[in-house]
Amino acid sequence: MSAHDHAESHGHAHGGAAHGSFKGYLIGFVLSVILTAIPFWLVMSGVIDNKQATAIVIMAFAVVQIVVHMVFFLHMNTASEGGWSMLALIFTLILVVIVLTGSLWVMYHLNANMMPGLHDMREMP
């Protein structure tokens, strides 16, 4: 796909950002419709009895859909801007993962330790 995009680009100063093709947008759209419809259907119909399993499945669908949008709509590839946009993306993703997992992990344990009954408050110093 990227070779096709480069052949299509025409000397304008668009800094290496590819525009995509009609086919690319269509594939991306169809994929994202499917990847949206399935999680909605899973939750609305409750086919999977286990809620935790449903949550994991819909999160997996979200991750795949985000990648689809990145590739087909935002035209991310390792070559655009000489690799700098991919580097910035990877850096951001690392920060996002640290922020999200760190917050959820720490706050979950904080909540668990603050549960009434878990500790007797009279024993507190």
Partner: peptide, 16 residues
């Protein structure tokens, strides 16, 4: 892309 996160994380997981 952000909305994908919102509808999955907030709405769908909220219903679960």
């Amino acid at each position: 892309v952000v909305w994908i996160g919102v509808f999955t994380f907030v709405y769908l997981m909220g219903m679960l």
